[in-house]
Nucleic acid binder design. Structure first.
Lengths: 227, 227
DNA sequence: CGCTGAGTTGAAACATGTCAACCGGTGTGG
DNA sequence: CCACACCGGTTGACATGTTTCAACTCAGCG
C-alpha cells in the first residue's frame, strides 16, 4: 500500500469508502485530489438523459480528481466498485509539497500521461472496434492490469467487480448486447465471466479477438503509474 | 506565441513542420516532448488493419508526446493538419528545468489533466451519442476552442482544416455517414461545412443537437491549457 | 416466500456501414 | 490547351450490427 502513495509520508487524508459510494461526484469543486491506495474505482460521465459512460477504471496507485484549472467543476464522477482506501490530498497540501519536491509534479504528470494513454486506447476501441473486439479488449486490459498488481501471480482467474451493465457503460454497448457477446465468447471457450468471476480459458484467442499488439499490452503493465 | 510556451525562455528546439507531416509517429521513443506553438495537430492511433482513430485535436499551447515512462514507445502518432510551429523539448531539458522551477511539473500536469478531460468527453461522445450528436459536438468543440484563441473575435466562421474523412476518424464514423449528417445539418440551416470552411448558422440549435451543457462548453475555453 | 437485481433469450426496428457510381475542382504532363 | 488522374465530396440501394422491447430465469435476501 505504501508504494502507491504520491506523497510518501502524508497520511492525514486517509479514508475508507464502501462499495457503491462516490469518491467525488460530477460538479464537485476539485479542492482535493484522490490517491487510490486499495480497491477498484470507475470514473464516469453522465448525459442529461441518463446515458452513462465509464471513461476509466482506476486501480491502486491511480490519482483521481485532478482538474486542469482550479475553478473548473468536475465533469466526471468516481464510484467505488469495491471497498476502497484513498488518500485525500487537498490541493493546498499538494502545491506546498510540490514546491519542496519538484519530483511530485513530475510524478503527477506521469500518472496523468498514463491515464491519457489509457483513455486514447479506450477511445480507439470504442470508436473503431466491433462489440466483440471491444469486450475482449476490455477484459484483457483489466485482467492484465489486475495481474500486474500481484507480481508472480499465475492464476487465470480473478474477481472482476463489474456487472454486465457496467461493462456496457465502459464499452458503449447495451447490457443486452454485452450479454450476447459474453455468451458467444463463453461458448467458444475463450473466457468465462459470471457474477463477477472472470476466467481466461484461452489467452491466445482472447488476444487475437481483442486485436491487441503485445506492445500495447505492455503499456498496461503498471504497478504504479508514475514509476 | 510566447504565451504558449511551457518553458518560457527555451527556444533551441523551435521547428516548423509542413501540413500533412507527422510531428512524431507511432512507436517513436519519447525522448522529447512537443510544445505546440502554432497550427493544428491531430493525434491518432492505428489498428493493424488500417482502421484509424483520431483521439485528440491539439491547438496552440498543447503539449504532445508525453509518455508515462521513459521506455514506453508511443502508441499514438501526431500529424500536422496545417503548417505548424513547435518547440521540441528533450526530456533531459525538461527534467533539469523542472528541478529549478517546480511550477513546470505542475503546468505539465495541468495540461495533461486538461487533455484527459477532453479525452473523457470525447469518449462519452463516441460511446453514448448518435452520429448526429457526435458530429455536432465535435464541430462545436472545435469552434469554441478555436475561438477562445482569438479573444474578441465574433465571427461565426472559421477555417477548420479537416476533411470529412478526418471528422469520421475522430467521431468513429465512416466518411459516407459523416457526409450524410453534415448534409442534414446544412439543410436544416444549423451549420455549413464545405472544403474546410465551417460556418455556424444557428448556434443555439447546434448546442441543442450536440446536447452539451454550457458548463462543459466552458471547460473547452482554453487559451493556454495550463493557465 | 415474494422481492429485487442480475442475467438470458427472441423478434423486430433502426442506425450505421458497405459498395458503387458519379460530380467537381485542381494540378500535371503531353 | 486539352486530357487525364486524383482527391474530396455526394448520393442511392442494400447489408449488417446493435438496440429496443419484452418476457423469462436464477440467485440472494429480508
Amino acid at each position: 500500500m505504501e508504494r502507491h502513495r504520491l506523497i510518501p509520508r502524508y497520511r492525514d487524508g486517509d479514508r475508507k469508502i464502501e462499495a457503491g459510494r462516490d469518491l467525488f461526484s460530477i460538479g464537485s469543486s476539485g479542492k482535493s485530489i484522490f490517491n487510490l491506495l486499495e480497491g477498484w474505482v470507475a470514473v464516469y460521465t453522465l448525459l442529461e438523459d441518463g446515458r452513462r459512460q465509464i471513461v476509466q477504471f482506476a486501480l491502486p496507485g491511480a490519482i483521481l480528481g485532478v482538474l486542469p484549472s482550479r475553478r473548473a467543476p468536475a465533469t466526471v464522477g468516481a464510484q467505488a466498485l469495491t471497498e476502497v482506501a484513498v488518500s485525500v490530498i487537498p490541493v493546498s497540501v499538494l502545491t506546498s509539497h510540490s514546491q519542496a519536491d519538484p519530483e511530485i509534479g513530475m510524478r503527477l504528470a506521469r500518472s496523468l500521461a498514463h491515464d491519457c494513454n489509457l483513455a486514447f486506447d479506450h477511445l480507439t476501441s470504442i470508436g473503431r472496434r466491433s462489440a466483440r473486439e471491444r469486450v475482449a479488449h476490455l477484459l484483457l486490459e483489466l485482467f492484465t492490469r489486475y495481474r500486474a498488481q500481484w507480481p508472480g501471480n499465475r492464476s487465470e482467474e480473478m474477481v472482476l467487480p463489474l456487472t454486465q451493465e457496467q461493462i456496457g457503460d465502459a464499452t458503449g454497448l447495451t447490457f443486452v448486447h454485452v450479454n450476447r457477446v459474453l455468451s458467444a465468447l463463453r461458448k467458444e471457450g475463450i473466457v468465462q465471466f459470471h457474477y463477477r468471476r472472470l476466467r481466461i480459458l484461452d489467452p491466445d484467442r482472447l488476444i487475437e479477438v481483442a486485436g491487441v499488439d503485445p506492445e500495447i499490452a505492455m503499456s498496461w503493465l503498471e504497478r504504479c503509474p508514475w514509476a
